[in-house]
Design a protein around this nucleic acid. Structure first.
Lengths: 129, 129
DNA sequence: TACTATCGATCACACATGTAATCGATCGGA
DNA sequence: TCCGATCGATTACATGTGTGATCGATAGTA
């Protein structure tokens, strides 16, 4: 299995567009991300090239344009970033990180309820195993 | 209020040592972090210099040695990193991040119970407010 | 006192990243 | 058919980061 490459901040924006839309031409990607980030189209092209070089994206030549698609899954990238974040900031410990999140952020009652449900479910699984 | 500077992976290791120990000489810091990370003492010195330049550390000259101490609090750095992580990976949304953590990680029953207690507490606070 | 080990300061160097500009081919419109 | 717009490819350049070496001063040690 190919390792998930490191994806920088700016590159994440591009990946998100492709994860959400499936396949896009360079022009569509530029349209999707350049405005919101104040990037020149050239900048987006550079990001696309780097992501291809890293193995995070693939493209097919369709007529004169390239159509890009993600080669690595969003989940895998999220897991990778999460591991890196946890190990850097919380020494890899999940529970303190979750505590910090809950303490620091204002969660809505709905979100709190949803999280509790998830914890209940996790606890049940744990019980059975 | 001075902004919290960006602190890189390697620099975090140094900061952790100082947050935990209070004040340390360069030699003590090297002892604390160089071994575990396979770093040359020079590397640690460089990190110290960069952290001072960034405003994350201060030092006093004590005799011939420098004694370093953190100028920025751990909490502030953790918050900064957390915000950056959340906005990059989860578009700034806390709840999905917590869900991901809980789903992906194997939490012990004790940790699960502790988290549920925290959620209960947060929900009570929310209720009263 | 002469030498070496050490300290902080400065320099080095490759790779990643943010942020583009330039270049050669080509397509679409005048 | 010719020209400018556009595409992908290549190049640029400052800053950050990982990883360390060199240099001059100095403090112990022999």
């Amino acid at each position: 299995m190919a390792q998930v490459p490191q994806i920088s901040d700016a590159e994440w924006e591009v990946m998100k567009a492709l994860w959400e839309q499936g396949q896009l031409t360079a022009g569509q990607i530029i349209e999707a991300v350049a405005g919101a980030n104040h990037w020149s189209p050239r900048t987006v092209k550079t990001l696309l090239n780097r992501l291809v070089k890293k193995g995070a994206l693939a493209f097919e030549v369709t007529g004169r344009h390239y159509v890009y698609r993600a080669k690595v899954g969003r989940d895998a990238c999220v897991r990778r970033e999460t591991r890196s974040f946890l190990s850097r900031v919380f020494d890899g410990a999940v529970a303190p990180a979750v505590l910090h999140f809950i303490e620091q952020s204002r969660l809505t009652p709905q979100e709190l309820a949803q999280l509790r449900e998830l914890l209940d479910e996790a606890a049940r699984k744990e019980d059975r195993s």
